[in-house]
Design a binder for these strands. Structure first.
Lengths: 104, 104
DNA sequence: ACCCTATTTGGCGATTTGACCAAATAGGCA
DNA sequence: TGCCTATTTGGTCAAATCGCCAAATAGGGT
């Protein structure tokens, strides 16, 4: 793997890592339905608000979500719905394993 | 997030984490082209063979790749090409960010 | 200006991850 | 059987991740 290729895969991994957490996947899923502010997400998820804030900043930093301040709150939404294809990919993997199991 | 939903997202995250590493993404990419044994992948990538073996076991454990012993070697291949849609997802995210930048 | 709510930031301890080395294991083949 | 190559496993260490708490910051509204 030459250094150019290495950089490419590290960049892909950077985005991929940002999604690789149950809470962050859940946030992405909820933000697909509608936008939410930090406090609302905190109530939906039930962990400390500082934890949610950090998850959001990881997603934002990876360019997966964007924020917008309105009134007293910071609202988050998906930067691009394309991330949702991630879910079908993950579900496909899980399903293709179930299939494998059944065959045996 | 009720406990059923929590389990669901943890399961998705389990697969997602397995892919969230530059070397493992690279392995997936190479295994899409053809199957390889551990030693060959080690030479392609250039880290310790035990490191590659562990990466492979993570991918195998997540049901992303499968192995097959033939002769002296263990060959690995994709369990299902569906994981490749992950790459387009990641690239889409990166591109949608570039677009955003250009607009500004 | 002051209070109050929302959010972010810094720091801490616990856990996980990733890379290497060395040693164990597996199996083919002379 | 004994050797040799390929692979896996266990141990160690450094670095990254995660969740909480406490404190800092931001900004609206009275």
């Amino acid at each position: 793997m030459d250094s150019l290729e290495k950089r490419k895969y590290e960049e892909l991994a950077r985005i991929s890592k940002a999604m690789a957490h149950a809470t962050r996947l859940y946030i992405i899923h909820k933000l697909d339905e509608q936008e939410y502010c930090v406090k609302e997400l905190t109530e939906l998820i039930g962990v400390d608000i500082s934890t949610i804030s950090k998850h959001l900043s990881i997603l934002k930093n990876a360019g997966i979500i964007i924020d917008e301040k309105r009134g007293n709150c910071v609202y988050y939404k998906l930067q691009c719905r394309c991330v949702l294809s991630m879910f079908s990919c993950l579900i496909n993997v899980i399903d293709s394993n179930k299939d494998k199991m059944n065959v045996l």
